[in-house]
């Protein structure tokens, strides 16, 4: 028995934790809590509601028509409203619930943990947009059945790519803010104010009233910057010729809302002492 006690106990030749396993565990951690299940259930409800309402309007309105592209856009809405909360919670809940103690003892290399969470968030973003596309296709097919119009299957690859890209940008912004703030209410508030409330409720008014707002705000809002490049038009619908400045503006907003908070946040997570 005394020989057992003199055996070297630590085996440095063992394999480490494979990255794929870490990502799968992080995805599981997003949806294995009661809160996670509810968020998913509510989002599913939103999707069905959006589909149902769209079909109702189309069914009651002989003149109204829609295309697959339009359906895709509509279905992307419900998955972009609530699901970014997952991208926030995957980071901040570790702090609020103090599970980071366990997480960082299972994987002491915090950069790896951040990367695994990032890949998990990206997977979720793409997965949900695919689900939205499936529901969109379903809705479009039903539209062909219940209205006299023939369904139009016209979702160009470019449009689909933009929808996916925007969803990713949204999720990454939420993730980056969560890393920077490490606090659930703060991250959720900043994310929704910056990405939804201001651009939908405040900026339009300012932009309608002031020239400086029309000049400045697209530089502060990722969604506007994306839309200008994507639709080749200003907020007010005036066509523009997309040039270097517009791509520069897009890159600037992405840096402002994703790269910068993401880098600072990652640095904070690596350095901060978990208690």
């Amino acid at each position: 028995m005394s020989t057992a006690t003199t055996d070297p106990t630590i085996d440095l030749s063992r394999p480490g934790v494979p990255f794929g396993r870490e990502v799968r565990v992080e995805i599981r951690k997003m949806i294995d809590t009661r809160g996670g299940v509810w968020l998913f259930a509510i989002t599913a409800l939103f999707i069905l509601l959006a589909m149902g309402l769209t079909l109702l309007v189309l069914g009651l309105n002989e003149d109204a028509t829609i295309t697959a592209s339009g359906f895709g856009e509509i279905m992307a809405l419900p998955v972009s409203i609530l699901l970014p909360v997952f991208a926030i919670l995957i980071v901040t809940s570790e702090w609020s619930q103090r599970t980071h103690l366990t997480t960082f003892t299972l994987q002491p290399h915090r950069g790896r943990v951040i990367l695994a969470k990032f890949v998990a968030v990206t997977t979720l973003a793409i997965g949900t947009i695919v689900a939205a596309a499936v529901f969109g296709a379903l809705g479009n097919a039903l539209y062909g059945v219940i209205t006299p119009h023939d369904p139009v299957w016209n979702l160009p690859v470019a449009d689909l790519a933009w929808i996916v890209a925007q969803q990713l940008l949204f999720f990454w912004m939420a993730f980056a803010l969560a890393m920077l703030l490490l606090n659930t209410p703060a991250a959720i508030a900043v994310f929704y104010v910056a990405s939804m409330i201001l651009p939908f409720m405040v900026y339009p008014i300012l932009m309608a009233m002031f020239q400086w707002a029309r000049d400045l705000l697209p530089w502060l809002n990722m969604d506007y910057a994306v839309m200008m490049v994507r639709t080749e038009a200003t907020f007010l619908g005036d066509p523009i010729e997309v040039g270097v400045v517009d791509y520069l503006r897009l890159a600037f907003t992405v840096t402002l809302w994703i790269v910068l908070p993401g880098l600072l946040g990652a640095l904070r997570i690596r350095r901060t002492e978990v208690k």
């Binding site: 630590i10 440095l12 063992r14 394999p15 480490g16 934790v17 003892t105 299972l106 002491p108 290399h109």
Partner: peptide
């Protein structure tokens, strides 16, 4: 500790 591979198993 941080140099131990899959540390929780050790």
């Amino acid at each position: 500790y941080t140099a131990i591979p899959n540390p929780a198993t050790q």
